[in-house]
Design a protein around this nucleic acid. Structure first.
Lengths: 180, 180
DNA sequence: TCTGAATATATCAGAGTGATATAAAAGGGG
DNA sequence: CCCCTTTTATATCACTCTGATATATTCAGA
């Protein structure tokens, strides 16, 4: 079986909440997980196929529509998933093209660098706004299991605090670029 | 030519500072860029080969040692690099397995979750310490071009501010988990 | 009824990862 | 000076993941 396929665990986590189609999984990833996770169709469908072969998931019968395939987590899948939750997480290095560019920008006109930073700041302001919106929705409490609320909130708080830190850093750095 | 190979731009940026071997590039990436960038040998060597074919770089002659191949940026490479610096950077989604796990951890014992968070906090404390150390080295001003200093400092400040935000978030979330 | 948006699956080339293999040079201790 | 470990150096491979593209159906609204 595949060894390092992290998409599998994300899919197991989503199917553990509710049986879904590949399309549903993508939607959930874009709507809920975006900010710290992402999935592509180009990886979801092959992974689902592999997981089906491995007995991690099965196909729910019934649906009149034949093109639509709804998957559910199996007992084996749930065991794999719970083992993963308990595993220690090794830190994966992330790539930020923006930071790479900034480090190499000493030859650029200062105004250009400041413009880049202002753009970046705006992006993060929008992100923070989105998280605050989602937090409000969460408080209005819809169809979400009560015990999951603190965890969803924690994830949103992370987005807010990190975003605010980036915004402060942008301000500070713009100031620094004006001085230097 | 390759279209989305970001490694190429990182390599051009490094070669623009000084001619290097593939090994040097990896070392620079691990030492200086780590925190917001990473490169693998498995990608560096094929990319160097491709860049050589495209005339972005050339091989420096001389070296007595035959196994060692030292590359330098060409005029074409420098133009490509400078165009990239001016391009708008599109935000790339990042994956955090830790955050994914946390979101799905509502079924785990609270002590386990707190333990995970404490571990994560410690990791970021170490990172911040490392950045502070690097900042001190930078102030001692070694072999770095004067005009690059504000940019290196900006990158380090980003690491420090972001790290500190994560640490605060860990404290807050541990507290929340104890209450809930 | 037309039309565009959303739903749904699939495939492919290429980017990037992580492990492994190989071998020479350099450095330090006994 | 020899031995041993570490560092330097390049290369390859299977696998993960990305982003673009193709295709077709259903649904909502003008």
């Amino acid at each position: 079986m595949a060894l390092k396929n992290k998409s599998m665990y994300a899919i197991l986590g989503i199917l553990n909440l509710a049986p879904s189609t590949g399309y549903d999984i993508k939607k959930y990833s874009d709507k809920v997980l975006s900010g710290f996770w992402n999935e592509n169709f180009g990886h979801i469908y092959p992974t689902l196929k592999m997981m089906l072969e491995d007995g991690m998931i099965n196909i729910l019968p019934g649906e009149i529509n034949e093109k639509k395939v709804r998957y559910a987590i199996t007992e084996k899948g749930r065991m794999e998933y719970e083992a993963w939750l308990l595993e220690e997480t090794v830190q994966q290095p992330a790539r930020s093209e923006f930071m790479l560019k900034l480090l190499f920008s000493s030859s650029l006109p200062r105004e250009k660098v400041i413009f880049m930073l202002e753009d970046y700041k705006e992006l993060h302001e929008k992100n923070v706004g989105k998280y605050l919106e989602m937090q409000k929705d969460l408080e209005q409490g819809n169809a979400i299991a009560r015990d999951r609320v603190p965890f969803i909130n924690a994830v949103l708080r992370r987005g807010i605090l990190s975003g605010e830190a980036v915004i402060r850093w942008c301000d500070e750095t713009i100031e620094e670029m004006r001085r230097a």
